[in-house]
Amino acid sequence: MKNAMLLVTLISCLWFSPTSAAADEQMQENAQRVIVKLFGAGGGTLDSYGTGIVVSADGHVLTVASHLITTGGLTAVTADGSRFTATTQATSMQADAAIVKLNLAENQQLPFLDLATAADAVPGTPVLAFSNMFRVAAGSEPVSVVHGVIAATTPLNAVQGRWKFPLRTPVWILDAITNNSGAAGGLLTSQTGKPLGLIGREVRHEESRTWVNYAVPLKTLQPVVEELMQGKSTRLKNADETAAATLSDRQLTAQFGLTMMPSLLQRTPAYVDRVIAGSAAAEAGLQRGDLIVLIGDTVITDVREVGREMGAFRQGVKIPLTVDRSNQLINLQLTN
């Protein structure tokens, strides 16, 4: 047993090559050549910039399925500073991936990353993360590179603002700050420049609410990308989300037209933030500002309990609600 432990220690030592063996310059350059800076619509807390990786000579770019690529007016700046308009070809919510096509001139070809060359990696691997974070680099300037180590491989359990983040595939948790504005869609490589992963988004862990630095292994994305390149978008399958029998915020809005206040505190009171006119919630008489105190017989003390309790009711069954409206308790029936 002792020997086995020693073995594990030894092996892990091998991965920690000193950072001084700073990335091979040629390899770094190769990584820089395939990265594009994306610019599109943003506003408020949504950034108007991001990162992508060129994955075909005719200008297919892999990035995350963020608001940036769904809002139109997207432009991409390649490593040599050339600027292209771009159109979103297909997205996969489950893999949080998207393929954007740059509008190249006829017969124009770009240096690209062949996803088939993507390598696998294990926790302990020193990595470099290339991205357009904070929009520091402009035009032909090389994007930012930060260093770190793959800390763990684990399914991602994250939230983005009030929404449960749909990505479920195992990701690499990084001991490097990649959770920055504009970094998502960047390239994770080994220290020798081998392509490894797609830098993930600005999300928080569902339980700890801390920012998660993660990347999705390119190897797991490869089949998804193939489908996306053929123009096949994949939407979320309902089964995926309802598996936990908890209704996500998204589903609450979709099914009942009910939006609750975001869960910001240790315990956020279950206030109704919005009721869509003509929805089931509106028909039941719910109003903005109502505090849900009971669902069925269960006392609600935290807004996060709403989805779980509502999800416990079978379809077609009316959900009895008690709300506090201006210090008056009102009983309502919500059609499920």
């Binding site: 807390t45 904070f134 520091v136 700050i177 504005s181």
Partner: peptide
């Protein structure tokens, strides 16, 4: 570059 984290390190 300090942003959502407040005035603490963000790796940039």
């Amino acid at each position: 570059s300090f942003e959502k984290r407040g005035r603490v390190n963000s790796g940039a």
